[in-house]
Nucleic acid binder design. Structure first.
Lengths: 345, 345
DNA sequence: CTGAAAGCGCTAACAC
DNA sequence: GTGTTAGCGCTTTCAG
């Protein structure tokens, strides 16, 4: 009554073999879709499998084949805020959904920076066939070295060019920033500021680069730059600093939606209306964007698709596919909402 | 160049044994903290482990010990919205953080209702030592049967009393509902309505029961009930129906924050002010609560702690702890904000 | 195309 | 306390 009896009900491959009147090797072949088995035998074995409700034991399989059929997702952020951020949520979701169609299992590792040693051991211990590393910060590319012992795919490009030999998938931040800014330009805005991200985060750097490209292309001033840390508060503060410069501003590109919304309040304080006085474009198309007042024009980077793509690339890597490019960039598309409008002539 | 060479660098237990001059069994004992090993030998073995950078192979260990050191988290919701909901995000986080202190690994399973057969197979295939099942809906207790073959812990109590023999951890919704309502009563409110959840969701039912208990205790009318589906829209609609009854209402308890916020707009339409005319209490203390206008008084159910508790209970179950109670209820605490005020005399 | 045999790396009785 | 001996359930050469 009190012991957990080992599930004697779990049929083994051997039982299936006996039931089907073949050898264990053959059953194994069928289970693994080996092409070299007669159709008849396949049917026979499958019947036995169904009758017995056989499910292969993953540990045994993994021990014998030296593959785990599992991949790790490492979230090195300060754990406390990991899931608050829609960015992470969506990535996880994209990964999970992609994996649902495969035989792979997802192991979630929240590696607080201090525990990253434990994490390393885990990854090197043959627990997973590969790992996905996601972070907003670039420092977390400290995992890079592990790439030698196990396939690794990063979400977001590495900041450091010397680490350019790691695999990553990233939104096309440069192009996204360019398109966002061009939209402002096309609407007749001529004094366009940016609230950029921290200088050590590739996403921020790249979006800034896109903004600059667009402005230079239109021969407009590209000196209206302030930095935030992607939080709404920092967006509001950056906006105040921009306004304090005394230069009239009629367009704003914020490197993410949260800062854009923060900027809203600073603009409001200053008696400026959005989009009339200042048109605003954000980035991310997170769930606050459509419900902001006014709804925010932004760049959609489909984080979910990014997660799926990361999983896809990793699996190809695990399968030894040599043709996978180091960098995969996902297209960024503009989503126009009410925060931008043509400038009245 | 093109093959993924098996990590020949991974030292085995045998190598450690040789290095330390002991048997493999002894190394195994040390690795597993067996009490019956001399301190000297332990030191010797650990030294060898460090020098070699030995990491036990999980598959082998699991095959031999018949334990996987992994647990599954099953999210049976329509996958699309799983991570949008802070409820899930926080639970996952709580689980992940708790597990970080253990030897257990978390496998994420997003089981779309249709795929639940694949999920069952997975769970029965000896892939995990136990599983956590989280859902807003009660139908998902369809996993209950699996409880016989593998330890299972549910998030949220089962709706059906016949399933009362499964393990679950839940917020104390009844008490939470009572406290929320009592707060309104204490503030001098005498006509207190509720926007409850769907009748088939335990959380809704329990919160309603708490509301009723408080009102009856104060001998107040408990007929002002309308149901919503936990969405803001449904909250607004339910509020309109309540107002349409023609009975003056000066207090409202909404079964979750999102419906409370929905009710805000309906009250606003009707020209009623919060908290002056109608004081409002929500439930969940989700992230919209503090930023609503006015900030919402609500019941905090600490979903993150719930996740952690679920993991804790499951692990105790896996360890054969017989003393774990079937039900674990987490205290719900009132968080007072500006949406409630004393009624002017 | 199928079977036989040899492990994968570790744990768990059982002896000593 | 420590070593010996069997496997855990599966994959994988190697024959046939």
């Amino acid at each position: 009554m009190s012991q957990r009896i080992p599930t004697s009900t779990a049929p083994t491959l051997e039982a299936v073999a006996a039931r089907a009147g073949v050898s264990r090797a053959t059953v194994s072949r069928v289970v693994n879709n080996s092409p070299k088995v007669t159709d008849e035998v396949v049917a026979l074995v499958n019947a036995a499998i169904d009758e017995l409700g056989y499910v292969p034991n993953r540990a045994a399989r993994s021990l014998a084949s030296r593959r785990t059929q599992a991949i790790a997702l490492i979230l090195p952020e300060s754990a406390a805020k990991v899931f608050d951020d829609p960015f992470f949520s969506n990535i996880v979701q994209g990964i999970a959904l992609h994996l649902a169609d495969t035989e792979y299992t997802l192991s979630l590792l929240i590696a607080s920076e201090t525990a990253s040693d434990k994490t390393r051991r885990y990854l090197r211990g043959g627990n997973v066939d590969g790992a996905l590393v996601v972070s907003h910060h670039s420092g977390d590319h400290s995992y890079t070295r592990l790439g030698a012992s196990i396939p690794l795919v990063f979400g977001g490009r590495p900041l450091n060019p010397s680490e350019t030999d790691s695999y990553f998938v990233d939104a096309d931040n440069v192009e996204g920033g360019r398109v966002a800014t061009q939209h402002l330009i096309d609407a007749g805005r001529t004094s366009i500021a940016i609230i950029s991200g921290p200088g050590d985060m590739p996403a921020g750097v790249d979006r800034l680069a896109g903004w600059r490209t667009a402005l230079r292309g239109a021969r407009l001033d590209d000196s209206l730059v302030e930095h935030g840390d992607f939080s709404p508060q920092s967006g509001a503060e950056a906006m105040r600093r921009l306004l304090a410069r005394g230069v009239p501003i009629d367009g704003l590109f914020a490197a993410n939606d949260q800062m854009a919304v923060g900027a809203y309040s600073a603009l409001h304080e200053a008696g400026l209306s959005v989009p009339h006085d200042v048109s605003v474009v954000g980035f991310d198309n997170d769930k606050y964007a459509p419900t902001a007042t006014p709804p925010l024009t932004t760049v959609n980077q489909s984080t979910e698709r990014m997660g799926a793509k990361m999983a896809e690339v990793l699996i190809r890597l695990i399968d030894g596919d040599e043709s996978v490019p180091r960098a995969t960039r996902l297209p960024a598309e503009l989503v126009v909402r009410a925060s931008t409008s043509r400038r009245a002539e």
